Computed example of a mutant assay.
Amino acid sequence: MSTAVECPLAWDVAVDDAPVALSARGDLVAVAGAEGTVQVLDTALGAEIASFELPGGALKVALSPDAGHLVATGPLGYALWRRADGRTRVRESGSWSAAAAWAEDGERVAVASGRRALVLNAVGKQLWRTEPAASTVTDLAWMRRGRRLAVAAYGAVRCHERHTENPVATYPYVGSHLALAVAPTGRWICSGNQDASIHIWRARDGGELTMSGYPEKVSRLAFDDTGFWLAADGAPDVTVWDFSGTGPAGTAPRSLRCHETITALAWRPGSGGHLASGGADGTVALWHATAGRPQARLRPVREIDGTGAGVAALAWAGPHLLAVAWRDGSIRMYGAPSRTAL
Rank of each mutant, 00 (worst) to 15 (best):
I304C: 07
A117S: 10
L275P: 00
D105W: 09
L118K: 05
G46W: 06
V38K: 03
V20C: 05
A79G: 12
E92Q: 13
T3N: 09
A4I: 14
S197N: 13
R257W: 14
V40W: 03
A249V: 11
A134Y: 07
A203V: 15
G278W: 00
A141K: 02
F228Q: 13
M333A: 15
W241C: 01
A153L: 05
F243E: 00
M143T: 12
A21Q: 05
G26H: 13
A289F: 01
G310Q: 07
A203F: 13
W287H: 08
A156I: 02
S135I: 10
A72R: 01
T261M: 10
L120Q: 00
T170I: 15
A101M: 01
V109A: 04
G278L: 04
V109M: 01
S244Y: 03
H69L: 11
P132C: 07
G175T: 05
W81Y: 04
R145M: 12
S93N: 09
T283L: 15
A98C: 11
V5A: 14
A152W: 02
A152N: 10
P337W: 14
G279L: 00
T261H: 05
G272N: 09
A141N: 04
A312F: 01
A34R: 05
L221S: 06
A276T: 07
H199G: 02
T37V: 12
L314E: 00
T43N: 08
E260V: 09
L230H: 05
E131I: 07
T340V: 10
W267Q: 02
G155R: 00
H274I: 15
R268P: 07
M143R: 09
W267R: 02
R91C: 10
A231V: 10
R332Q: 12
G245F: 03
T73S: 08
L286E: 07
A30N: 08
C258L: 14
E92D: 13
P300E: 02
E303Y: 05
P65G: 04
A264L: 09
E131W: 08
L22S: 00
Q126I: 13
G114N: 09
R158F: 05
R89S: 13
V324P: 02
D195V: 04
W96C: 09
T290V: 14
A58N: 03
G247H: 02
Q194H: 13
L298C: 06
G310R: 00
V61M: 00
A30K: 01
H69V: 07
E131C: 06
M1V: 13
S23I: 10
A50D: 15
E131Q: 11
A276H: 06
G68M: 07
G206F: 07
E216R: 12
D328S: 12
R108H: 13
Y173M: 12
R254Y: 10
G74P: 01
A4D: 12
R148V: 15
V61I: 14
A117D: 11
D42A: 15
A323Q: 06
L59G: 09
R220I: 05
V38R: 04
S23A: 15
T261G: 11
W102Q: 05
L180W: 05
D195T: 10
T43P: 03
T210K: 06
D105F: 11
M333L: 15
